[in-house]
C-alpha cells in the first residue's frame, strides 16, 4: 500500500519537475477560454445560457484533448523505463508490477484531473459570469469535467498497454499517435461513410448507435449530449443518443478503463527489463 503511494509521489514529482502539469493545464485553460468566447455568438438564437453553449463546445474540445494529453504521459510509462534501464532496478525491489502500474496511474490521473478541472472550471466560471448559468448548465459542467477525467483514464490505460507492447519509447509514441488518430478521427469518419452507404437501412437504425458507443470517445460525447437537452440542441446531434438506452454511454466509458488496465497489466507482466 505505502509502496504504490511512494511510486505515485515520485511520478507526481516528475510531472511537476518536467513542466508537464503546467503545460497541460495551460493548454486546457487557453483552449477552453478560446472556445467559450468563440461560441458565445449564437447564444440568443438558441435561448440557452452561455455556460450551456460553452459546455457544448468544450465537450468537442475534450474529445480531442483528453485522449491526447493522456497518451502523452502514458506512452513513456513503461517503455521509457525500459529504455533508460531503470526498470530492472525498480523491479528488483519488493513493489510488484501491479503496484508500479497502479502508482503511476494514480499520479497520471491526478495530473489529468487537475488540468481538466482548472481548464474547464476557469472557462465555465468566465461563461457563467458573462452569460449567466443555471443549475442545469452547472451540472453539465461538472459532468463534463468528470467524464473528461474518465476519458483520460481510458487513454492512460491504452497508453500503458502500447508502452508495454512497444519496443522502446519512440515506437510507443508512434503507436500512441496512431491510436489517437483511429479512435478520435478515423473511427467516426468510417461510421459516417457506412451510414451514407447504408442510406438509412437496418445498419443505421440498430447497429450504428452501438458501434458508435463502443468507441470511448463517442461514448463520452453521447453521455454529455444525451444528458442535457440544451447541450444536445447546441451541438445539433440527438439522433444517436435517442436510439440507445441511457446506460450505454456510461457503461462504455466505465468499462474501458478497467478493461484497458487489465490488458496493460497483462502486457506488462511479459515485459523483460
Amino acid at each position: 500500500m505505502t509502496r504504490f503511494l511512494a511510486i505515485t509521489r515520485t511520478e507526481m514529482l516528475i510531472l511537476r519537475r518536467n513542466r508537464w502539469l503546467l503545460m497541460a493545464t495551460l493548454i486546457m485553460v487557453l483552449f477552453a477560454l478560446a472556445l467559450t468566447f468563440a461560441g458565445s455568438a449564437p447564444t440568443g438564437t438558441l435561448g440557452v445560457d452561455m455556460l450551456t453553449v460553452s459546455v457544448a463546445s468544450m465537450t468537442t474540445l475534450s474529445v480531442y484533448l483528453a485522449p491526447l494529453l493522456a497518451l502523452m504521459i502514458a506512452f513513456d510509462a513503461i517503455a521509457g523505463d525500459v529504455d533508460r534501464g531503470s526498470l530492472s532496478l525498480l523491479l528488483s525491489y519488493p513493489a510488484g508490477r501491479g503496484e508500479i502500474m497502479l502508482g503511476k496511474f494514480t499520479a497520471h490521473l491526478a495530473a489529468l484531473a487537475f488540468a481538466m478541472t482548472v481548464g474547464f472550471g476557469t472557462a465555465g466560471a468566465v461563461a457563467a459570469w458573462f452569460g449567466g448559468a443555471g443549475p442545469e448548465s452547472l451540472l453539465a459542467l461538472v459532468r463534463l469535467i468528470l467524464t473528461s477525467i474518465l476519458l483520460g483514464a481510458v487513454f492512460l490505460a491504452q497508453g500503458y498497454l502500447l508502452s508495454a507492447l512497444a519496443r522502446g519509447a519512440t515506437a510507443a509514441a508512434g503507436l500512441s499517435a496512431g491510436l489517437w488518430l483511429v479512435f478520435v478521427v478515423l473511427y467516426d469518419l468510417g461510421l459516417l461513410g457506412a451510414v451514407v452507404m447504408d442510406k438509412g437501412g437496418t445498419f443505421t437504425q440498430s447497429v450504428f448507435p452501438w458501434v458508435m458507443v463502443a468507441n470511448p470517445a463517442d461514448a463520452f460525447r453521447l453521455w454529455n449530449i444525451a444528458a442535457t437537452e440544451g447541450v444536445a440542441m447546441a451541438s445539433g446531434m440527438t439522433g444517436a443518443a435517442q436510439a440507445l438506452p441511457v446506460w450505454a454511454a456510461p457503461a462504455s466509458l466505465l468499462i474501458w478503463p478497467v478493461l484497458g488496465f487489465a490488458l496493460a497489466r497483462a502486457a506488462f507482466r511479459r515485459v523483460e527489463p
Binding site: R3, I14, R84, S86, Y93
Partner: peptide, 24 residues
C-alpha cells in the same frame, strides 16, 4: 545493474528516498 540509470528529472535524494520506501 550494469550501466545503471535513473529518471533525469529527480534529484539523488528523491530517487534514494523512493528506493528506501519501496524496500520498506
Amino acid at each position: 545493474p550494469e550501466a545503471v540509470s535513473f529518471h533525469p528529472a529527480l534529484t539523488g535524494r528523491e530517487q534514494l528516498t523512493l528506493f528506501a520506501q519501496l524496500s520498506g
